[in-house]
């Protein structure tokens, strides 16, 4: 998992409540043996005018010009501004994989679905929960200003708008630590690497037959 670094990110607004995981990444793309490459199919049903299928070349598909991520002013966005209950639906980890693969590092919304919230942090995506009225104001500012970007500072739990306004946000201390250090579940376990190696050495000495490379031929 990549470390979360402070950066200024272009904001794309998705003005729609209850965006579910099937809208984020439709079910037909779950057959993949990969966990990358889902970015081209992020919001597939909204982005394209035809029905997508796995393994398809998306470069020639008919684009929905009304969809926000297809508009030129939002190209290169890394902050997604969304409405309440973002990420509801299933437990599929493909949803945060797709958002990340597309290039998003932060999603701001008034609320998030529970499992998605967990999955997103585990996959390096920062979710910022802000009051409904703050989110509404941000939507208005994004619409009014082309090139609207937010400075997201996780370390100090602050977002700074282009006008210099500072918005503070809450985040669980452990999740924050994991994001800043780039620690996923494996990374957390590997913090105990010394203890694991010590156990392994003792285990090998006591029961060498459990280790094929220590076994007698």
């Amino acid at each position: 998992m990549k470390k979360f670094e402070r950066s200024e990110g272009l904001v794309a607004p998705l003005d729609r409540a209850n965006v579910d995981t099937d809208l984020i990444i439709p079910k037909q793309f779950l057959k993949s043996i990969k966990r990358t490459g889902f970015g081209v199919n992020l919001f597939d049903e909204l982005r394209y005018l035809d029905e997508g299928y796995p393994g398809q070349d998306c470069s020639n598909r008919p684009i929905n010009p009304d969809f926000v991520l297809n508009q030129s002013r939002y190209q290169g966005a890394s902050v997604l501004l969304a409405r309440r209950n973002f990420g509801c639906g299933s437990s599929r980890e493909h949803a945060p994989w797709a958002l990340e693969d597309f290039g998003f590092r932060v999603v701001i919304a008034p609320s998030f679905a529970d499992i998605f919230y967990n999955n997103a942090f585990k996959n390096g995506l920062l979710l910022v929960t802000l009051p409904e009225e703050t989110v509404e104001r941000l939507f208005q500012e994004v619409a009014a200003n082309e090139g609207y970007a937010l400075d997201v500072d996780l370390e100090n739990q602050r977002i700074t708008t282009p006008s210099g306004e500072v918005i503070e946000f809450e985040v669980d201390a452990f999740r924050k630590h994991c994001l800043l250090e780039g620690l996923d579940d494996i990374g957390i376990t590997l913090q105990d690497e010394g203890a694991i190696r010590a156990f392994e050495a003792k285990h090998r000495a006591a029961r060498p037959w459990l280790f094929r490379d220590s076994a007698q031929a």
Partner: peptide, 27 residues
């Protein structure tokens, strides 16, 4: 708690994304 695993058996259905995860993280 962490338990140490002596043997892992792998097959084609539940392993591809696990291997890809290793590759992506450089592990």
């Amino acid at each position: 708690a962490l338990i140490y695993i002596d043997r892992q058996l792998l097959h084609e259905v539940t392993s591809p994304q696990a291997f890809e995860g290793l590759r992506l993280a450089g592990r």
